[in-house]
Design a protein around this nucleic acid. Structure first.
Lengths: 259, 259
DNA sequence: TAAGTCTTGCGCGATAATCGCACATATGGT
DNA sequence: ACCATATGTGCGATTATCGCGCAAGACTTA
């Protein structure tokens, strides 16, 4: 099952690494920045970036490089392939309307979760700066723990064992066993609630999509702590669950690996 | 200014072509499908796809391949780099709220426009199936014509001369001169209105972001014809313009090419 | 059932592209 | 003016890529 070195293109791998590097770099990295991040020789880095420029994924302005909107087209291939525009987005909108809160949909990507869609609330002048394509950790977030709780058990065990637990707020739980306990509770409850651990003063609440053991997507919301009182939770969970049920058809066929 | 062949990586170019091919292919293409689309030998195609699998951008299931959510991370690099989460999305949400209609933001990508963000309306159970990353033509859409009208004149002239004008509805205008006239009108008015030409029974209305001659982004909405009466247009345009003005800061610095 | 068509998997030698050093030039901060 | 750092590019040696070719599996048609 493992892919032999013979069956891979090293040059392409390097090229993708360069493209990835734009995520870890600032908004407008220089050639040297990318070379440092990737660790490749500047000549190689230059050729690979120029290839991206030629293809229209990157623009060069004043010896700095930046991504173009064309990278979104690649994302569009995924979103369209899963019929997000028709099957997912409308459900999210209705869900947000019923909840009175903005909701987000995230999927497993190795040892992170990736925002794949979000329904923004009309009046909310307030956002956390997350967008489609944002990666969030699994260990410290509500959505992440829900994915761990109902995702592939082997994968979850490995993540719980190896994923970093660096504190990002003062309340971040850094004890792996305690996190595992929280995940177990989430698995039994069918929803995950995390307060303050990822962003100070913020509570995340999420439910899984699909069935226990094979879940790859989760639906969640984030609000200031005082907005989500204990009394409110049951109603929110119920609504989230109903929406998650409607989203399920869009996530059943592709079996998908956790890598 | 042209990039010499010496300064490019052919293997990387082929790899990106394979990744692109997932857009033109169905949702779950086989190895042979991709090889046909790209025109490369199957052995090469295989190596390149396996590289993508190894990197986590593609999954293999039952001799078929499909994109993973990780491709969204690449898009996230662009969105985060331009601070979409904080600068753009909130404005779109407020804009939609004031208008009572969902709005979309699109940017120039060579001879197409790409949806880069959209504010969904809470209650709208209705969508056109477009998502972030969807490409729409310039010649037949409201947003496209607005981009042509206020975009770089040389680029616009070339698109008007060369872009395809294949009819997609019975009302599609196929005469380049007439399209050019419509674009001129849009340029002078500062907004573009297109009825039925892209989707039957649908009207698009859009305004530019930035200043005439250098615009690369446009803000627009789409609704059934009867929803957008002539009497409504002025109010909608005024609101769209105000939002476009607020979006402007996010689009000033990057000069950007049209390619 | 068997032939026919279309797949995927993979080994291997010749070829051609990549690699990365090295030097000249440009840029920017102190 | 100086130093540190970045970019642009030429070129020979290396090495990864290329793509043919064959074996084996899947599906269709007769």
């Amino acid at each position: 099952m493992a892919i032999a070195e013979r069956d891979m293109s090293l040059t392409f791998l390097k090229g993708m690494t360069v493209l990835q590097a734009f995520n870890d770099a600032g908004p407008a990295p220089s050639l040297a920045d990318i070379a440092r991040i990737t660790g490749y020789d500047r000549a190689i880095t230059r050729r690979l970036i120029l290839t991206l420029v030629q293809l229209g994924y990157v623009e060069k302005a004043d010896n700095r490089f930046h991504l173009t909107p064309r990278v979104l087209v690649l994302a569009g291939g995924f979103l369209r392939g899963n019929d997000f525009g028709r099957l997912v987005q409308p459900v999210l909108n209705i869900c947000a309307s019923e909840l009175g809160h903005a909701v987000a949909l995230a999927m497993v990507d190795a040892d992170h979760a990736v925002y794949v869609a979000q329904s923004t609330l009309q009046n909310s002048r307030f956002t956390f700066g997350f967008t489609v394509g944002s990666r969030i950790p699994l260990m410290q977030t509500s959505i992440g723990r829900m994915l761990l709780a109902w995702g592939d058990p082997d994968w979850a065990a490995q993540v719980l064992r190896e994923a970093p637990v660096d504190p990002v707020t003062r309340a971040t739980e850094t004890d792996r066993d305690r996190i595992a306990d929280a995940v177990t509770i989430a698995a039994d409850q069918g929803h995950a609630l995390v307060r303050d651990e990822f962003e100070d003063g913020i509570t995340g609440l999420s439910v899984p999509i699909g069935s226990r053991g094979t879940t790859r997507a989760a639906l969640g919301l984030s609000e200031p702590n005082e907005t989500l009182t204990e009394a409110e939770i049951p109603r929110l969970v119920a609504t989230l669950r109903r929406c998650a049920g409607q989203l399920r058809p869009g996530f059943s066929p592709a079996a998908g690996a956790y890598s």
